[in-house]
Amino acid sequence: MATITAVIASTHHPFYYRASTATGADRPPFADEWVAKIEAFRETLTRADPDVLVMVGSDHFHQLWLDNMPQFLIGKAPFYDANYYNEEREFGLPRMFVRGDEDLSAYLLREGMDAGFDLAFSNELRIDHSITCPLITLRPEADLPIVPVYTNIFAPPLPQPKRFVQLGKTIRDLVESWPSDKKVAIIGTGHLSLELGGPRQFGPHGPDPEFDRKAVEWIASGDLERALAEVSLESLWLPGNATHGFMDFMLMMGVAGEGVRADYTDSLDLFHTMEAYFTWYPGGAGGPATGAEGAR
């Protein structure tokens, strides 16, 4: 059976690529600290030495549209082109190209449906920054095959938070039962409090630092009980109008397991939104992280 060597959850800040590659007067004052934190975070994946990456994210109205909107979708393709014209335009993101692992995609689709999730699929999927941002931060070589898992955190009606958690648990179980000798890392990105296109956008911090503080603690400690008690589709409007992306963090908490404390936790208070980085090592395959503020 396959081995999960790392479970990783993080924010996906589309400005990282431009900030980290800018030089001279164009380089923002926070770039060096941000790069140092990302490089430490990247090491937590590198040491897990995966063969395949399952990557959870959300299409930002690129390929998936309101005339035919899936709630949960798994890509099943041999290759994925990545990033879009409007992401080049706004964020300076590069075009990318990654391989897919069709065997694992097919396994997750078949077994996922048999486990109670009527998953949509795509045989030709262009992935966006919800998946390429973690590739850029965690595996910039983009040399490993991926299985993209897309969730709808964007276009109401949305699935309930508990379904994200259940899907995360199911993905964990299915990858562990995949008849393969490969090492798999499961990586998912979401948001803490975030406002886009509203009065609280682009402030000096995220729109709700108190929510962020609680959310980081829920994730770091695997406190699904409290997260599920305090989070609802309605409540997620309060910290910011794009905070439903937190449900992808809840999905990753389902992958990591109830009550399982992250082996590595770090965060960075930026303008606009707080960055947060978490790594778990199921079975201790990669060992606990050292350095930065890790291993709380």
Partner: peptide, 12 residues
């Protein structure tokens, strides 16, 4: 209108 769509286009 969806806040993300409006913001993205108007930034452009």
């Amino acid at each position: 209108a969806h806040h993300f769509l409006t913001l993205t286009l108007f930034i452009a």
